[in-house]
Design a protein around this nucleic acid. Sequence first.
DNA 1: TTGAAAGCGCTAACAA
DNA 2: TTGTTAGCGCTTTCAA
Lengths: 314, 314
Amino acid sequence: MVNLADVAHQAHVSKMTVSRVINHPEKVSTEVRTAVMAAIELIGYQPNRIAKALVNHQNYVIQFLVLEDVVTVEPNYAILLLHLADVLNQKGYTLEISTTITDNDHIDGIIVSGWRQSDLLALEALRVPVVLYGESPTDHDMAYVDVDNRIGTMLATRHMINAGYQKIIYVGMDVDLPFSNERELGYLDTMVAKKRVSRVYTVANHSHIAEQLIHNIMAQLPKNTGIVCATDRIALGVVRALNKKNGVPEQYGVIGFDGVFIDQISSPQLTTVHQPFAKIAQSLVDNLFLQLQNSELVMQRIAPELIRRDTTRA
Amino acid sequence: MVNLADVAHQAHVSKMTVSRVINHPEKVSTEVRTAVMAAIELIGYQPNRIAKALVNHQNYVIQFLVLEDVVTVEPNYAILLLHLADVLNQKGYTLEISTTITDNDHIDGIIVSGWRQSDLLALEALRVPVVLYGESPTDHDMAYVDVDNRIGTMLATRHMINAGYQKIIYVGMDVDLPFSNERELGYLDTMVAKKRVSRVYTVANHSHIAEQLIHNIMAQLPKNTGIVCATDRIALGVVRALNKKNGVPEQYGVIGFDGVFIDQISSPQLTTVHQPFAKIAQSLVDNLFLQLQNSELVMQRIAPELIRRDTTRA
DNA sequence: TTGAAAGCGCTAACAA
DNA sequence: TTGTTAGCGCTTTCAA
């Protein structure tokens, strides 16, 4: 293991100077700096995260808290997780995944997904910075990052209108959380703006239940109907129900939301509102580090993108 | 932050004694030990992982290396990952997720998934212990943990036979890796043992391609055929293709492999061979820690379980 | 059986 | 601008 002392020896300076070149390069003269950097390069020095952590009273560990049941784990979390790990690794941080809220002092910050209203109090009480994935209710002043849900369903609804579907309905999910309400509002606002008559159904977020719903209300679904769905899971069930009548996308349009995995194993493949998880991960981490520095709270919504596939007309 | 010195002070002993109570309790007299443990309990002391790591030249970081394309990320990896994180956390370890092989010295060991034959040389060259998820080819002497793939398809094939399906075929995947070959052998062996005529098809591991295959070979699929599939993805496509003829499970039985997520969003829900990911995660970690201690190499196969759902007859 | 000293690799304060 | 000293919290010698 190459350490500071080795570099110092190689560059004929003190350990302190090497440390400064790494952490406060502006406090070192140009010649010395270049010499030290050459030495670092030459002997392939890499700072020891552990020693750094000890002296700085930091851990270089961020916790990813998944409060949703592991069994029902969404591919969404998986993809977010992978991006998160990537971003953190680049900053020399490591990830700890947890499924329960505990007040550890071996972590520097927490990123939370799959939380419910009832978790927020416990999360606010934590001593370390917390960032939520998903918009928080207005009565809680917590930092969050989310896709702009309202814009997402707005894009979807507009696309339905432009594609010429006559009747356009919304199948939402039975969860009273901001992200869910926002998605519904994106649909409703757009319908009002375009002077259309809106119709909202609500189901649990399972493909089979959505499938059942469509079977039940088939009589109220004339041909040329567009169905905007709150999630890809719901959309998957809707497509399955309709597909048997061979109406997608000619007679029935379907648009999902999330754009991870499920959209692709659907047949036909889903048109969907895609959450840009790489950006979301980056933003979550940036947000957390901002708090680490200034204890500023930031709420951030990231624009989604409509991906056109095979469940809507061109 | 409560530290060793605080405990020592509370218990009227030296720091060293406290350290010994934690790491080598047998070297401390019973009275002192109980006194120290009481003190630890009283003031809520938790060892500082960082300081420990520094002095022991360990990192308490395990890398989970995902060599498969992130975009096509399987829910399988996600669920394995979550279990892995759980097991590691309990041992005071943290997880680093990486998508590229690099020879770091800030990690203590590597667990690899999604590897290909061509990755093995680079993995063998690493200085830290490595455990593969998935059986390795016999020409590489590497530690691995895997579900017992052969037993998995054996269970599936037997179940088909017991359920009375007349013709039984296998739809495998076009990958020349041990796990894939083993799954095929589980089917073939069972068919031979039961004096049945076997028939193997091979496709890429995508639901749409499997769906297409079934359409193409429909003429060779008389009623009362059982279809053993190498993965849930393939099974999903098979069910979709057959479902239109309303033949599952009465006329056609389908069994998948993996048992994570996809099996449940299929309609009807898949009968499948379930990989016990909690056990696999535990075993991967145990295996790695064994190497950390003795540099013993272990190959381990874990028995899967058939989950009966709605794509096979009772 | 217990304790004192030294040091893991690093950085913040202070001194030169 | 650079170097010296001290110490983060822990554990392994070595001595009592």
